[in-house]
Design a binder for these strands. Structure first.
Lengths: 219, 219
DNA sequence: ATTCTGCATATTGTATACAATATACACATA
DNA sequence: TATGTGTATATTGTATACAATATGCAGAAT
C-alpha cells in the first residue's frame, strides 16, 4: 500500500466508531433507505455495522438532537415523522435563510464559481436520474452558499434541508416538477451572473415556493 | 406524602437519567455556571450527578449536536467557544427568525396574552437583578412567540438563543444597556397592542441590533 | 540549554453485563 | 365475547470492565 493511501486511511480511522455510525445512519435516512416512522433496533444496527450498542446509542442521541430520529424512552428510536404543518414551518424557515444566503452568494461569486454553477445547471437540465438530480440540486445550492464565508448559516441551512429530505424524494417524480425546478435554478444562476442579489433572493424564494408546493402536494 | 405529589414525582422520575443529565448540564451552561472553554470531565460529572458515565456520555452527545459543547475525540468535551464572526452569524440568523416571529405574534395576540406581556415589561423596567432580568427577557420574547402556533420556529429560535446565551451575560451589566433593552421591549409591546405586525418586526430587529451591538462590544 | 524519545498515567472510547421498563400473550373473570 | 390481570419476554437504559489514545514528564542525545 502506498504511503499516501495508508496515512489517508489512518486519518479516516481516526474517526471514532460513534462518528462513523452517525454518518452511516444519517446517510441512510437522507437517501431514503430508512424511511419516516421506521423503527431502528439498536442491536440490529450494532450487528449490521459491526460495533457494540455503545457507539450506536451515542450516535442515535446525536441524530435525535438533529431531529432526524425521535427517541421514545424505553420504547426505541424511530425515523422522525413530520406533520404537514411541521413541514410547512420548516419550509418557511428555509425560505428566509436560503433567500438571504442566495442574496449574499450572488453578490460575492467569482468567475470560477459561476463556471462551476453553469456546469451543474446544464447537467441538471439534461439528467433524468432521481438520485443524481438530488445530488445536483444539492451541489447547485451549495455552490452558491459556499461562495461566501458564512459557515454557521450554511450549517443551519443544511440541517434544515436534512430535516425535510426524507419528504422530498417523491416530489421530483411528479410530472413536470423536474423541469420547473431546473428552470428556477437557471434563473437563479442568471441572477448570480449579473451579481444581482435582490433577484437571486427573489428567484430563490420563488423556486423554493414551487418546490415546497410539490413536496406538500406529495404528502 | 400526598398522593398527588407522589404521582407527580413518579412522573418526573420517568425521565431517564440521560435526559435529567442533559437538562442539568444545559442549564449549567445557560446560567453561566459552566463557561465557554471550560473542560467537562466525564467522571467528575458522573460523580457530581450520582450516575455512571453512560448517561453522561449520551447527554454530552445531545448537547454537542445542539452546539452547546464541542467534543474533541479522545481529548474531551469543552463548553463551546465562539469567535466574533460566528456570533455575528448567529445574531444575523436570529434577527431574521425573530423578526418574522414577532410579526406573526403581534398579529395574533389576544387580550390576555397582551396583559401578561404588559406585566413583564413593567417588571423588566423596574428590576435590577441580572438573573431576573435574563428570565424576564426570555419571558417577554416567549410571550410573543407563543401567541401563535409555530412550535418548530419557536424551537429553532430558542436553540439559537441558547447558542448565544453564554455570551450575553456580561452585556446587561454595561452602562445604560438595560434601560435601552427595555425601552425596545416597550416599543415592541406597543406594536403588539396595536396588532401592527410590520412595526413589531421592525422594532424587534432594531432591538436585537442594539442588543447584539452590546454583546459584540462586550467580547 | 534545548530538543527529542519513550514510557507512565489519566482520560476517553468501546464492549459487555446487568437492571428496568414496555409489550404481548395467556388466562381468568364478568 | 369482552375486559381485565398477571406473567414471560424482548428491548431499552445504566453500570462496569476493558481497550485505545493523548498528555506530561523523565531522561538521553545534540
Amino acid at each position: 500500500m502506498a504511503l499516501a493511501e495508508q496515512s489517508l486511511s489512518t486519518l479516516n480511522n481516526l474517526k471514532t466508531r460513534e462518528e462513523m455510525v452517525a454518518d452511516a445512519i444519517r446517510r441512510a435516512i437522507l437517501t431514503g433507505q430508512f424511511k419516516p416512522g421506521e423503527k431502528l433496533d439498536q442491536q440490529d444496527l450494532a450487528n449490521n455495522l459491526g460495533v457494540s450498542r455503545s457507539p450506536i446509542r451515542e450516535a442515535l442521541r446525536t441524530l435525535a438532537a438533529e431531529e432526524l430520529v425521535t427517541n421514545f424512552a424505553h420504547r426505541g428510536v424511530v425515523v422522525t415523522t413530520r406533520t404537514r404543518a411541521e413541514l410547512e414551518e420548516l419550509l418557511f424557515i428555509r425560505m428566509m435563510l436560503e433567500g438571504a444566503a442566495a442574496r449574499r452568494g450572488a453578490e460575492s461569486m467569482n468567475r470560477a464559481q459561476i463556471a462551476v454553477l453553469e456546469k451543474i445547471v446544464l447537467a441538471g437540465e439534461t439528467s433524468n436520474d432521481t438520485q443524481e438530480l438530488l445530488q445536483l440540486n444539492n451541489d447547485f445550492h451549495n455552490g452558491i452558499y459556499e461562495a461566501f464565508s458564512q459557515p454557521v448559516l450554511i450549517t443551519h441551512i443544511q440541517q434544515l434541508r436534512n430535516k425535510i429530505a426524507p419528504y422530498n424524494r417523491v416530489y421530483l417524480e411528479l410530472e413536470g416538477r423536474k423541469e420547473e425546478a431546473w428552470a428556477g435554478h437557471r434563473r437563479i444562476y442568471e441572477a448570480c451572473v449579473e451579481a444581482d442579489g435582490s433577484a437571486a433572493e427573489a428567484e430563490t424564494k420563488l423556486h423554493l415556493e414551487q418546490v415546497f408546493d410539490g413536496i406538500l402536494q406529495a404528502q
